[in-house]
Simulated assay, not measured.
Amino acid sequence: MLRTLKELFGALAEPLPAGQPADAEHRLQLATAVLLVEVMRADDETGEAEREAILAALRTQFDLHADELERLYDLAHAASRDAPDLYSFTSQLNKGYSAAEKARIVEYLWRVAYADGRLSHYENHLMLKLGDLLYIPRGDFVAAKQRARAAAGLAPD
């Protein structure tokens, strides 16, 4: 498994080949999934609600079957544990997504943060960091946060 993860991180660092759209899509899927898992792991209180929020986000964002979602989640969890930083993942999203698509990803990240009904200061800190790494304008960042709070049934800040 270690060799596989080393290959994965090496592949994420390489430039995208021109004729490989499937590889580019897989990189975006994995990078997105890893960031979702990172938010889940931010406060050391991982629960089923957060896991379900991740799977719902991946299901909405990508056209994947249930078994593919589970494999992606498992791979993202392993990659998240072994990742030296978040840059390799956020840079993939910056290369592969438009500003509007990245704002939608940020909303999914907020939904994971709010899945347990509260936002820890660790989750908030990570979200601020991810918003900066993804170059999300502050207004779009706050709007995504408010939509996620409303989706979780929480009152606005």
Results as ranks from 00 to 15, higher is better:
55 L>W: 03
107 E>A: 03
86 L>Q: 06
13 A>I: 00
104 R>T: 13
92 Q>P: 00
122 Y>L: 09
120 S>P: 03
13 A>W: 03
29 Q>G: 06
98 S>P: 01
10 G>A: 08
11 A>N: 11
145 K>S: 02
120 S>G: 15
64 L>H: 06
9 F>M: 07
66 A>S: 09
111 R>W: 07
80 S>F: 07
18 A>S: 05
57 A>K: 02
56 A>M: 03
127 M>G: 12
150 A>N: 00
143 A>R: 05
59 R>G: 02
26 H>R: 15
11 A>E: 14
73 Y>C: 11
91 S>L: 10
31 A>N: 07
43 D>S: 06
129 K>W: 10
26 H>C: 09
116 D>Q: 09
112 V>R: 03
126 L>V: 10
27 R>N: 01
102 K>M: 02
12 L>K: 04
7 E>K: 12
20 Q>Y: 10
18 A>I: 08
157 D>M: 06
20 Q>V: 04
9 F>T: 03
65 H>V: 12
42 A>I: 09
8 L>I: 12
106 V>Q: 02
122 Y>N: 15
91 S>P: 00
122 Y>R: 13
131 G>H: 05
51 R>T: 10
111 R>Y: 06
19 G>Q: 12
80 S>A: 14
1 M>P: 10
5 L>S: 10
2 L>H: 13
110 W>G: 04
27 R>W: 13
3 R>T: 09
126 L>K: 08
31 A>L: 03
130 L>G: 08
36 L>Y: 09
69 L>T: 01
62 F>S: 00
147 R>G: 01
61 Q>I: 04
14 E>N: 06
154 L>A: 03
109 L>Q: 05
117 G>Q: 04
28 L>M: 14
62 F>A: 01
112 V>Q: 05
61 Q>V: 09
135 Y>C: 06
87 Y>P: 00
3 R>Q: 15
87 Y>Q: 14
68 E>A: 14
97 Y>W: 08
41 R>H: 13
5 L>E: 09
93 L>H: 05
50 E>Y: 05
86 L>E: 04
59 R>A: 14
123 E>Y: 07
3 R>L: 15
61 Q>P: 00
57 A>Y: 07
56 A>T: 14
96 G>V: 14
54 I>M: 08
101 E>P: 04
39 V>Q: 09
111 R>V: 02
122 Y>E: 15
52 E>Q: 15
96 G>W: 08
